[in-house]
């Protein structure tokens, strides 16, 4: 399991990047389109000429061609060979590197079983679904047993459900294989779900490298905070365990009940889009509901930001303009709200 180190590497808009990715780590690089994520992967893979140094396990690999770097690369476009069957696609790298036929057969068969695509062996890429194509491309990248795997937006162009399953499987599989993984995505929620550590990249600069929780609670600068969606970060005044793995936390006049195994929660981050707003009292009883006063309304292009006061607590909520327009919300008026617990992040004591 190798460690990857980038020392002052530069190409295109990526300037003097320094980064260390640890042995066996599932490392996710997050950033907007054009931030330099794929360029970074291409430099590690060696498919792009760059300045600076890339070290794997302390060895300078600048002079090594891509396939000698021990790196597997799942391209965003997948780039399956359309004229080869699934089986031939997976075995391509092994054939190219001169492995014995019996070994190739064994390895391809075990990979197809591992990726649940053994029933597709004779199919051509145009005959299989998007999710299956991703699995085939992943199996092809894993076939030559790389020590490092680079994944460029592996769940893009998939429906939400398939993407969710795939990223969980990916995480489980690669952690089990002990492959050092560098996963690139623009989806922060995806990164939070699977990353050991996240690097946030913007305009070719690495803004922050941290664990998902650290990133949320200690954004390094305003640009990171903005990318995270400016979460409401609150200190919990009281936190008490309820029965059956639930905990109730109190922040001024705001109370939230959420599932938690530990004893108490110290800090909580509430993303503005996790706050649901109603202009009338909801008909059904809602968990974690509150009544607040609208202190300010900020209109952006597609979203409206509401700054709410719940007693002495200030909470930022965000809702789509179309929904805001269908409601009668004004400054100083009362609104009803509820907090969706799925997207909350917290630090325990």
């Amino acid at each position: 399991m190798p460690e990857i180190k980038l020392v002052n590497v530069s190409k295109y808009n990526c300037l003097d990047l320094n980064l260390t990715i640890n042995d066996g780590e599932y490392f996710v690089i997050v950033g907007e389109t054009g931030a330099g994520k794929t360029t970074l992967l291409n430099m590690i893979a060696g498919v792009l000429e760059y300045s600076g140094t890339v070290l794997i396990d302390g060895l300078n690999i600048n002079h090594l061609p891509p396939f000698k770097r021990g790196v597997g690369y799942l391209l965003q476009e997948l780039a399956l060979f359309p004229h080869y069957s699934v089986e031939a696609n997976i075995s391509f790298g092994l054939r190219a590197q001169g492995y014995a036929k019996s070994m190739i057969k064994e390895r391809v068969s075990s990979l197809m079983k591992m990726m649940n695509i053994d029933h597709l062996a004779g199919h051509y890429p145009h005959m299989i679904s998007g999710g299956e194509k991703k699995r085939v491309a992943l199996a092809r990248s894993l076939a030559p047993s790389p020590r490092i795997l680079l994944l460029d937006e592996p769940t893009s162009n998939l429906d939400a459900q398939t993407a969710k399953y795939l990223r969980r499987e990916l995480h489980f599989l690669l952690k089990n294989l002990g492959v050092t993984t560098v996963h690139v995505t623009h989806n922060l929620r995806e990164a939070e779900e699977i990353a050991d550590r996240i690097a946030l990249i913007s305009n070719g600069l690495i803004e922050q490298v941290a664990t998902p929780v650290e990133l949320f609670f200690n954004p390094a600068n305003s640009s990171v905070a903005e990318f995270l969606g400016m979460p409401n970060i609150m200190e919990c005044n009281q936190s008490r365990s309820l029965s059956s793995g639930l905990v109730e936390i109190v922040m001024g006049d705001l109370k939230i009940i959420l599932p938690y195994d530990g004893r108490a929660i110290k800090k909580i981050a509430i993303p503005p889009d996790a706050v649901h707003i109603y202009d009338e009292h909801p008909v059904q009883p809602l968990l974690n509901s509150f009544i607040g006063t609208v202190e300010d309304i900020i209109q952006n292009n597609s979203v409206v930001i509401l700054i709410l006061l719940i007693g002495k607590i200030r909470l930022i909520a965000e809702l789509p303009t179309s929904i805001f327009d269908s409601m009668s919300i004004e400054r100083g008026g009362k609104v009803f709200g509820a907090i969706k617990i799925e997207r909350l992040r917290y630090i325990g004591s």
């Binding site: 893979a45 396939f67 690369y73 476009e77 399956l80 391509f92 790298g93 092809r140």
Partner: peptide, 15 residues
């Protein structure tokens, strides 16, 4: 020919 397939082949060690 899709240059990405060439890049993939290159990455997989093809001459």
């Amino acid at each position: 020919v899709d240059r990405m397939t060439v890049k993939a082949a290159h990455m997989l060690g093809a001459s």
